[in-house]
Simulated assay, not measured.
Amino acid sequence: MANDNRDALLYTAAAEIKETLAALTARPGLFSEENFASRAEVLDELEFHVLDRLDGLLAEKLPAELSNLRNQATALRGELEALDQRLFQRLRALIRAGQCTPESLRALLEAYAGPPEPGSSPAATEYDALDTLTNGLFIDLAEPLATEAHDPEMVYYQKTPARIIFEMAAKISAHDTFYDLGSGLGQVPLLVRLLSGATTAGVEIEPAYCRYAQACADALRLTRVRFLNADARAVDYADGTVFFLFTPFTGQILARVLGRLRQVGQHQPLRIFSYGPGTQALAQEPWLRRLSPAGGHLYQLAEFRNG
């Protein structure tokens, strides 16, 4: 009886997975290059609702039907990923050849990724197809691990959602010099350079992250973007006009860095964008004036100006 129940459960699972796989494969326009957002959704569903479920059944002695379904799902995933890789290669070639203006690249990427999901939250951990697409612009290398221990007031690295970067880049001009403080793997300076034409710099204390970011810039043949392997408290920001902080540090380190920015602001106008809990600290600085509405979610882009 136990074996009968087990077999019934396995064949029920096979029927459900087969139905899911057929529905995913039948998505309209799935294999058209421009339907990147649909492919990203299908790849997620393949991973979490088909392949993960099948992997969970691998402990059993799978009937042939389930093994065949796994082969079909793996083949579909490979085909979709290969199509995306061809798209990434084409976009990289356009960038390397200088054939994309900031405006045309933005329009192209937003068209491929589609709008954000209705009712989506601005939470820092929520990413969508635009993140997958912009990640694909950069070199296909394993993300490096941090190699050095850092001060407890330095916050662990987390990527800024691409839609936040796009929102910020729309407010930056080609005449600006932009600094990302705690730039991690470099996506913010790279995308701001591509989407605004500004001169950009990333300040990052972890050398492995800096090397990775510079390799991404070199692979796209980007000029006027650099990565400084340095402590943010020791950098000369005299040429900076726009700064971004995704809560890279807290406490005395943040106070010291803001003190340096305040000194720069005594000689020229500055804009500071913030995202995450660090916005609260900037809002308490008497030399900064908040332009974006106060209150609301911590994980929304905030803009400040000096004076």
Score class of each variant (00 low, 15 high):
62 L>M: 15
254 L>A: 11
129 A>F: 03
278 G>L: 04
110 E>N: 06
221 R>M: 14
298 L>E: 03
240 G>C: 05
79 E>T: 15
251 G>V: 00
87 L>P: 09
89 Q>P: 04
171 K>N: 12
260 R>Q: 14
179 Y>G: 08
111 A>V: 08
285 E>W: 00
209 Y>D: 08
14 A>T: 01
133 L>E: 06
166 F>P: 10
6 R>Y: 06
46 L>Y: 06
129 A>Q: 04
7 D>C: 11
211 R>I: 11
105 L>C: 09
283 A>F: 00
209 Y>T: 08
238 A>I: 01
246 F>A: 13
137 L>Q: 03
289 R>W: 09
11 Y>I: 08
262 R>C: 10
239 D>W: 07
152 P>T: 13
267 H>Q: 13
94 L>N: 14
12 T>M: 12
266 Q>D: 15
115 P>K: 12
219 A>R: 04
157 Y>Q: 05
261 L>F: 09
78 G>L: 15
8 A>Q: 14
12 T>E: 13
178 F>C: 12
256 R>L: 06
218 D>V: 05
302 A>W: 00
273 F>D: 00
45 E>K: 14
63 P>G: 06
102 P>E: 01
158 Q>P: 04
277 P>N: 01
287 W>C: 02
252 Q>S: 02
157 Y>G: 03
255 A>I: 02
2 A>R: 09
243 F>W: 03
66 L>C: 02
306 N>P: 01
151 D>Y: 12
180 D>Y: 04
168 M>Q: 13
100 C>R: 13
96 R>A: 15
166 F>Y: 14
250 T>N: 00
99 Q>F: 11
258 L>N: 04
62 L>Q: 13
283 A>Y: 03
295 G>D: 08
128 D>C: 03
292 S>H: 13
67 S>L: 13
161 P>L: 11
98 G>I: 10
149 A>M: 14
123 A>D: 15
282 L>D: 02
233 R>G: 06
178 F>P: 06
48 F>K: 14
297 H>D: 15
273 F>H: 02
264 V>Q: 04
88 F>K: 04
133 L>P: 02
59 A>S: 15
199 T>A: 07
50 V>G: 06
198 A>G: 01
156 Y>C: 10
27 R>E: 05
182 G>T: 09
265 G>T: 08
262 R>F: 07
263 Q>V: 15
53 R>D: 04
37 A>C: 10
33 E>V: 15
167 E>I: 02
169 A>W: 02
91 L>M: 13
217 A>F: 07
128 D>W: 02
55 D>E: 15
307 G>E: 11
219 A>T: 01
91 L>C: 07
246 F>E: 05
27 R>L: 03
184 G>E: 01
60 E>Y: 14
56 G>T: 07
275 Y>S: 01
133 L>F: 08
100 C>H: 13
95 I>R: 07
137 L>M: 08
4 D>S: 13
101 T>M: 13
302 A>H: 02
276 G>N: 05
225 V>Y: 09
107 A>D: 14
286 P>E: 11
279 T>L: 01
120 S>T: 14
259 G>F: 06
61 K>C: 08
89 Q>R: 14
261 L>E: 01
179 Y>L: 12
99 Q>L: 15
150 H>G: 07
67 S>W: 03
142 A>M: 12
